[in-house]
C-alpha cells in the first residue's frame, strides 16, 4: 500500500470511530501531535503536585490534610497513566522526564501561579480541576486508544478533586469576614488563569483544524471555555462570591454568558517561562529528580543482586 492509501484507510478508521492502537499504522504528524499533547498533559499532572504539596503541612485540620494528600497522590497516578500512554508512541520515560526538567517540554501554565493562602486549595480544586475536567471528559473519546483509556481512569478520580475544592470554599464562604475575604481573594486570583487554561482563541488559528479531523480533540478551545464560564457563573452564586469580570453577564440571545477580554500577553509570558513560579517549579522538579537518583540506582542494584542469587542457586 502506498502512503496515500494508508492515510485514506487511517482517516476512514477515524471517521468510523475506530480507535487507533499503538501498533497500527499512523501518520507521523498524528504520532507527534499525540506524543506532545500526552506528554505535556503528564508533565502538568506531575508539576501540578507542587502548588498543592505546598499546603499539606499547613492544612487546617487532619481531615483536610488527609484529603490533600490523597489528591496529590492521585495527581502522581494520573501522571503515570499518561506517561505510560505516551510511551506507547515510541519515547522513553527518561526522555520525557529529561525534557521536562530541562525546560524543553511544556506543562500547563496554570501551575506557574503561586498558592498563597489555604483558600487557594479550594480555588485550585474548583476552578483549575474544573477546567481540566471539561477537557478530560472530552478526551475520554479521543481517537488514540491508550490516551482515551488513561482519560477514562483519570476522569473517574478527578471528580472528587473538584468537589472537595468547592466544599473547601463553601466552608470558608460561611466563615468569618477574614475567611470570606480569603475565599474571594483566591477566586479573584485564579479566575483569569483558569480561563487561559483552555488555550488561545479559535480565531488565532489560521490552519486547518487537523486535530479535530483526527478526533484527537472534539471541541475547540472557545467551546470548552464558554462551557466552563457558563458552569462556574452559576456555581459561584452558591458561594455568595463574585467573579472578577465586570463584563460577565447572561446573554439571553446566545444562551451563554458574555465575558471580558483575557490578558493574552500574560498568557504568552507565562508560557515563555516568565510566570511567577516557572523557575521555582523547574528547580523543585530537578531537585526531586536529582535527590532521588540514589534510590533508583539502589533499586536496580538490589534487583540485579537478587537475580544473581537466583541464578547461582539454580546452577
Amino acid at each position: 500500500m502506498s502512503i496515500h492509501d494508508l492515510e485514506i484507510s487511517f482517516q476512514n478508521k477515524i471517521d468510523s470511530e475506530i480507535k487507533i492502537e499503538p501498533k497500527d499504522w499512523m501518520p507521523e504528524a498524528y504520532r507527534k501531535t499525540n506524543l506532545r499533547q500526552i506528554s505535556q498533559h503528564a508533565h502538568s499532572e506531575i508539576v501540578g503536585m507542587l502548588p498543592e504539596g505546598n499546603w499539606i503541612s499547613r492544612a487546617p485540620s487532619l481531615k483536610r490534610k488527609a484529603i490533600l494528600i490523597a489528591k496529590v497522590q492521585d495527581e502522581a497516578g494520573h501522571g503515570l497513566y499518561l506517561y505510560s500512554a505516551a510511551e506507547t508512541l515510541g519515547t522513553s520515560r527518561e526522555q520525557m522526564v529529561a525534557d521536562l526538567n530541562s525546560g524543553k517540554a511544556k506543562y500547563s501554565s496554570i501551575f506557574n501561579y503561586p498558592t498563597l493562602s489555604w483558600a487557594d486549595m479550594g480555588a485550585v480544586g474548583w476552578l483549575v480541576d474544573g477546567a481540566a475536567i471539561l477537557n478530560q471528559v472530552m478526551l475520554c473519546r479521543t481517537s488514540y486508544g491508550p490516551y482515551a483509556r488513561a482519560m477514562v481512569r483519570i476522569c473517574k478520580e478527578e471528580s472528587f478533586h473538584q468537589r472537595q475544592g468547592f466544599e473547601t470554599l463553601l466552608v470558608l464562604s460561611k466563615g468569618t469576614k477574614e475567611q470570606r475575604d480569603m475565599c474571594q481573594d483566591a477566586i479573584n486570583r485564579w479566575w483569569w488563569p483558569s480561563l487561559m487554561m483552555f488555550g488561545p482563541k479559535d480565531s488565532e488559528s489560521t490552519n486547518s483544524d487537523q486535530s479535530m479531523k483526527w478526533k484527537i480533540k472534539r471541541k475547540t478551545n472557545d467551546e470548552l471555555r464558554q462551557q466552563f464560564i457558563d458552569m462556574i457563573a452559576e456555581q459561584i452564586k452558591l458561594l455568595g462570591m463574585t467573579l472578577p469580570d465586570a463584563n460577565l453577564k447572561w446573554n439571553a440571545e446566545r444562551k451563554h454568558y458574555d465575558f471580558g477580554e483575557i490578558n493574552w500577553e500574560e498568557f504568552w509570558n507565562v508560557v515563555k517561562g516568565n510566570g511567577p513560579c516557572n523557575k521555582q517549579r523547574l528547580a523543585d522538579r530537578n531537585k526531586a529528580h536529582d535527590e532521588g537518583a540514589w534510590v533508583r540506582e539502589a533499586a536496580m542494584a538490589y534487583a540485579a543482586k537478587r537475580k544473581n542469587k537466583t541464578a547461582n542457586k539454580a546452577a
Binding site: P27, Q40, S109, G199, S205, N221
Partner: peptide, 13 residues
C-alpha cells in the same frame, strides 16, 4: 506527508 498542526490546544503548546 507533512501536515503542520498549528492549532493551539490545552496541553498542546
Amino acid at each position: 506527508m507533512n501536515i503542520q498542526v498549528k492549532k493551539f490546544y490545552y496541553g498542546d503548546i
